[in-house]
Design a protein around this nucleic acid. Sequence first.
DNA 1: TCTCATTGTCACAAATCTGTCGAAAAAATG
DNA 2: CATTTTTTCGACAGATTTGTGACAATGAGA
Lengths: 229, 229
Amino acid sequence: MSTPKLLLVEDDTALAELLEYRFASEGYEVRTSADGDEALVMAAEETPDLVLLDWMIEGTSGIEVCRRLRRDKATAHVPIIMLTAREAEDDRVRGLETGADDYVTKPFSPRELLARVSAVLRRVRPALAGETIETGDIKLDPVAHRVERRGRSLQIGPTEYRLLKFFMEHPRRVFSRSQLLDAVWGTGSEIEERTVDVHIRRLRKAIAFDNARDPIRTVRSAGYALEPV
Amino acid sequence: MSTPKLLLVEDDTALAELLEYRFASEGYEVRTSADGDEALVMAAEETPDLVLLDWMIEGTSGIEVCRRLRRDKATAHVPIIMLTAREAEDDRVRGLETGADDYVTKPFSPRELLARVSAVLRRVRPALAGETIETGDIKLDPVAHRVERRGRSLQIGPTEYRLLKFFMEHPRRVFSRSQLLDAVWGTGSEIEERTVDVHIRRLRKAIAFDNARDPIRTVRSAGYALEPV
DNA sequence: TCTCATTGTCACAAATCTGTCGAAAAAATG
DNA sequence: CATTTTTTCGACAGATTTGTGACAATGAGA
């Protein structure tokens, strides 16, 4: 899974370190700069997934950084959350008008900022916020109805898709044919149990990949299970 | 340009009226409800573009309304801004975790809320804010009502235009025929579902380009999606 | 009024999916 | 090793779903 990359622009060293630590421990990759111009260079070097921008930094002002980020095509669509002083409503409004996506007023708790960051990422890049299911090397995006393995997208039929999705929602667990019929075909479907085998085979074929190991395990006289590769 | 539709859930009548007035005069279409359950019904009737949700309402609580909005497929992706009391940080964090996009703490100025709403809409549906949207090599200018691909402008009918615009506002996502009917033709239109197919074909034809890949993906038994090329 | 673009439906063709069989293969059993 | 049980595999006909061309109705603009 890709770890979201944050760019933190904050000249209060103590606060910066605190945040860096918290975000890192939540699985984010954080790069920090205390200076507006330096931050712009860093953003140009490696486009971050989200920018945390203190409004009151020395040198190039926050609002100017925001504007320049928006102007450059590479960073024009990177979400920006600004960190502002509580009182300055004007700043906040101006920030939103300039193109920031959001703000958090100081003092804030790291926990709150985390929730905010994740909410914004969820909006902008669902895949980063974990709306997709990942099992081993298979990724399934329910919103886009798309399945890929090792980055390559797979061609997969409707029933196989539902079957795979069900398996991925409950990895490692063994399901009997009748359980699968209930879960995937719907309760009370009058379908031959053997038919499940056929769809398992079709699913296997659909997700087969070069010589990668088959992630679907047959449990003799019990059913099938998906084992993350 | 289309006027953004807001749903305001607020049981403080005075505040509700104030906001209604302000937003209306800024070109928004506002529907108001003082009650959670009623609000859910209203949202189901006509999907709003954004929900303003007071956290402390009588009856069904704000958090519950939020959760239910998220659960229903039709409203799952409608942005929600919650209005909370200043102190309750826990509520705010919980709200963001439940799926709200944003919050504003009371008391707030209408001006600030306006900026916030417009920021969220810009992020989620740029076309509502009058910005041009770009998806892959297709560019759509909602103000000029023009579409171009790789610099060359495309001839495109009204319905196909709305369809494309909707797709471009939600790239990659799969929409069923009935969702498309609701979104593009308007709720409750009594139109044959298969008609969507025909317009998809017309749209495909309109945006076809030399031998460029067709960006509209058919998802069998599910619907259609726009994939950036 | 006439013209022309647009719209919603339909019917048919094409593509794709589904559930079942029976034979072959593989795994347990004794 | 022979037998029994269970799973895999290939094939196929019927069913669903989607693509496409044609057409009549509608309505805006000349």
